[in-house]
């Protein structure tokens, strides 16, 4: 049963590479957006705060698959309208865009929570030592905030990795799509999907171990 899978090993490994690339790109872009939004959601004016929280609530209430469809099909219509000729948004761009937009909302919430959990006295202490605000944020608040955000960030990485499988539905040639193709061609769906599941579990398992090891290495008294 698994010989068929073995013949497709290069295809599956390519797919796995694409899965990792999409997941890493989406996580990094999502994180960068969240790194801007989270401080604004805490220190920004009331309008900005409400707008960011609205975005977070909106995305958290929408199914990820629907967001992917909206960006993939909507993106093509939108780009065609703007350019005046037919432009198709490819699955890779649409996938990374939608996963980033979704991840950004959850990561904003994680970073916001972590930022709020840093005691206000830390600000006062830093300012009374003569730190200017930007420097106090970078040197005093940010490290403590990142430490508290770490478990949440790790969790979200796993979520993004698993969500990347959804992009296969719009045809991106990542691990899931390659498995579908292999399963269809060889009539061995069970073997292919079990292999795909095993590969995902391997990546999530290794990620979990690395995160735990890293967390344990961080300054123990701050945990």
């Amino acid at each position: 049963m698994f010989e068929a899978v073995y013949q497709y090993r290069d295809q599956l490994l390519h797919g796995l590479g694409m899965t990792l690339a999409v997941a890493i790109a989406s996580f990094v872009i999502g994180f960068l957006i969240a790194a801007v939004l989270a401080p604004l959601a805490v220190y920004g004016g009331p309008f900005l705060r409400r707008a960011i929280m609205g975005y977070v609530a909106l995305i958290r209430g929408l199914p990820e698959l629907l967001v992917i469809f909206l960006i993939f099909y909507g993106g093509t219509v939108f780009m065609t309208k703007i350019a005046g000729r037919y432009i198709e948004v490819n699955a890779l761009t649409a996938g990374i865009a939608s996963l980033s937009i979704v991840a950004a909302a959850y990561l904003t919430e994680i970073l916001r929570g972590a930022l709020l959990s840093v005691a206000h006295g830390q600000w006062e202490g830093a300012l009374s030592l003569g730190f200017r605000r930007p420097r106090a944020f970078l040197m005093i608040i940010l490290p403590q905030m990142m430490l508290r955000a770490l478990p949440g960030l790790g969790n979200q990485w796993l979520v993004v990795l698993k969500e990347s499988a959804l992009v296969s539905v719009v045809g991106l040639e990542e691990l899931m799509r390659k498995s579908v193709v292999g399963a269809g061609a060889t009539h061995q769906p069970l073997a292919f999907y079990l292999t795909a599941a095993a590969l995902y579990i391997m990546v999530t398992g290794v990620s979990t171990l690395l995160l735990k090891a890293y967390e344990a290495r961080l300054i123990p008294h701050m945990r």
Partner: peptide
């Protein structure tokens, strides 16, 4: 719980719908 939480729901759905029918 480790296996279920470690893999995407889509794979699990495909294993059940397409995979089990093969047996």
């Amino acid at each position: 719980t480790f296996l279920i939480r470690g893999s995407p729901l889509l794979v699990q759905l495909f294993i059940i719908y397409y995979g089990l029918g093969q047996i």
